[in-house]
């Protein structure tokens, strides 16, 4: 699995690469249009992450190039908050998803994985972690083949934790994931409640406690 990341802000590009380095896919990166174009012509990628503000609208041009080459790799647009018109143009060109700056790296990781999963599994889509299985199409969670009922938010939180397994997720990043753009409204108390429910339901189904609390910062699924 190969992912190409095109981002002209070098500091950010470096951080993205560092964060995604431990994942089960390979990342390649470049910070300019010409190099990106070259890579697109030489290699095959399963997912593209493209900053749309790549100088003189070349981000959009890049998406056009990708789609013209009949490349069926998924495209995630990174954009500034106030350039939603460009995002719409990008989505019309065939991009699959978008993130607005500033986003959490864990969120980017989750979005990339969603695209890669769709590409690999095509249709039947299940994430497995030891005794837990999550069926994405039906949004069902099975523990040892037995169905466990979760509310929508609990399901979203569990999926987010498992997608980013092995990584520490800050409470802030969880709030932003569950309630995008509602930061000033949801206190961390809501996360505590949801996590307590998740832990309880999993252990009642005979599952080990994989959700570790990282003091003061957040949680880690391991």
């Amino acid at each position: 699995m190969k992912v190409l990341i095109v981002e002209d802000e070098k500091g950010l590009l470096k951080n993205i690469l560092t964060y995604l380095s431990g994942e089960n896919y390979v990342c390649e990166a470049t910070d300019n249009y010409a190099a990106a174009l070259e890579k697109i012509y030489i290699n095959e990628y399963d997912c593209f992450v493209i900053d749309i503000m790549l100088g003189a609208n070349s981000g959009l041009k890049l998406i056009e190039e990708i789609k013209q080459r009949d490349n069926d790799g998924g495209v995630i647009i990174i954009s500034a908050k106030n350039s939603l018109e460009d995002v719409l143009k990008g989505l019309n060109l065939g991009a699959d998803d978008y993130l607005t700056k500033p986003f959490h790296l864990s969120e980017l990781n989750a979005r990339i994985k969603a695209i890669l999963r769709r590409r690999v599994n095509k249709g039947y889509n299940t994430i497995k972690f030891k005794e837990i299985a999550i069926e994405l199409n039906t949004e069902q969670v099975l523990v040892n083949q037995t169905r466990v009922d979760f509310t929508t938010k609990e399901y979203q939180l569990l999926l987010y934790l498992i997608t980013n397994k092995g990584k520490v997720l800050s409470k802030q990043s969880i709030v932003d994931h569950l309630w995008p753009d509602e930061h000033d409204f949801y206190s961390y108390d809501f996360i505590y409640t949801h996590l307590a429910n998740i832990r309880k339901k999993l252990s009642e189904a005979g599952c080990k406690n994989y959700v570790k609390t990282v003091y003061s910062i957040g949680y880690k699924f391991n």
Binding site: L12, N15, S170, S216
Partner: peptide, 26 residues
């Protein structure tokens, strides 16, 4: 937006450090 993004992503990388003591975590 960009500096905020970089600051946030730096912090996210710091969270991944193996051993963080209580005070730093706070």
């Amino acid at each position: 937006q960009t500096p905020l993004m970089i600051a946030k992503s730096n912090l996210e990388l710091l969270f991944q450090q193996k051993k963080i003591d209580v005070k730093t975590a706070e």
